[in-house]
Design a protein around this nucleic acid. Structure first.
Lengths: 233, 233
DNA sequence: TCGGCTATATTTGCATACAAAAAGTGATTG
DNA sequence: CAATCACTTTTTGTATGCAAATATAGCCGA
């Protein structure tokens, strides 16, 4: 169940069995992605270690791990800060994500099994259900799962890994978003088309749809960023 | 001079001034990329720490950093090993690299300044010189610099960062390669065409050329892998 | 001789301790 | 009154120590 890791949000660990400091990585990442640790805020090692119920050593290792992902930035002799959410950076990330999703779409049209497509369809309907109820968080959850599943259908684990890393940046901004009903409906409609193109295994069309979908996501994220940017500073 | 970091090979650090454990990350990465630490070999913390003249703590942090890049794999309670160089993994990486280089080529055609192109041309001639002398290592060095510079011309730092990370995997295999003269000449010719397409800012053609170039690289790497695979195991 | 078990040794993982650097504080002086 | 300097406090970076887990070796028994 690899999808579960994407939205793993438990802060107080339940699994002592034989996992290691990956727990800390996961917890820290969630704190950052969900915005509890704000962009550009300092990561005080003592405070965080206490909060996560560990010592500084595994925490520092986790910070280094996330630094490699780009979620935190290391300042020599001055610790680490949560990476800034700069509009310029978001544009960059979306351009790369666009290329990756387009690639994934193309590969998925060729490699996806019928079972894969059925699973995406199932996730799609879950998503529709939460959209109908106006449950944004749950909607996002299934939305993410669809995109991740599409990645996995491409059958390229490296692609999936890179995508996840970049996507973490974007999700940080998305957590702040309050979709207007209009935009939300539009996004759902886009997903309908995406599913349709996948079912027909029309790689070219799917690539285009994914690019457009991402472009719209970028617009949304930019609005969120400029809005909060004015509010917080 | 950001290109310098790509081929930074000093093991005994010269810079004590105010750099930190990034030194260890860089050293460790070089050991892996250059093959001194063979794929799937165990990373003994005590031995490595002594070799790099540090203690286990910064070394472990460096290992976690590289684990996030995918150059090493973490085995819970059993340390870390250098990531395997599996042909399947290489194929995956090249597919993603292909999409990224194509994207970079397209962006570079639009964003590169004349000075950028002049710099790439200069690197190109350096490369030709070392090709003429049959100096493989130096040839690779400038070859890499050209590709990195092309990435930078795209004006997307995120793209460059992701590219570098994936490229490290590939370079590990390339270090084992002994190019045949025929293939080598062909690669150089491809670079001539790449430069030409860039000068003419023909993004579509450049994308195609880069894809072909990468496809040929993949063939080369696969040959190296299957060859060494038979020899070492 | 071979397989399994125990005891030993190594190695990892985590916590703590210590040193250096940065940040904060306050007093003194121009 | 502001700025600077010295001093204190906090925080980071690194080394070391210790416990748990794993690998290794030796031993016994079949």
């Amino acid at each position: 169940m690899p999808e579960a890791a994407v939205l793993n949000t438990n802060v107080t660990s339940l699994v002592d069995r034989r996992l290691l400091h990956e727990t800390v990585v996961s917890q820290l990442r969630d704190l950052i992605v969900q915005g509890e640790l704000a962009p550009e805020s300092k990561l005080n090692e003592r405070v965080l270690a206490e909060k996560l119920g560990t010592s500084r050593t595994p925490l520092r290792e986790a910070i280094k791990f996330l630094a490699s992902e780009g979620l935190v930035e290391l300042l020599p002799n001055r610790g680490a800060v949560v990476a800034a959410l700069k509009p310029e950076k978001m544009k960059e990330v979306f351009v790369v994500l666009g290329a990756l999703e387009a690639l994934a779409g193309d590969l998925a049209c060729r490699n996806a099994t019928e079972a894969d497509i059925a699973e995406i369809r199932a996730l799609h309907y879950h998503m529709l259900a939460h959209h109908a109820r106006g449950e944004l968080a749950q909607y996002f959850r299934y939305n993410q799962q669809i995109h991740i599943k599409l990645m996995e259908c491409a059958g390229n684990a490296t692609l999936t890994q890179v995508y996840r890393g970049l996507n973490a940046h974007v999700r940080r901004a998305r957590y702040m978003a309050n979709l207007s009903r209009e935009r939300w409906d539009k996004a759902v409609h886009e997903h309908e088309e995406i599913l349709d193109a996948l079912v027909r295994r029309d790689g070219v069309r799917l690539q285009g749809l994914l690019r457009d979908h991402l472009a719209n996501k970028l617009v949304l994220v930019m609005e969120v960023l400029t809005a909060t940017q004015g509010a917080t500073s």
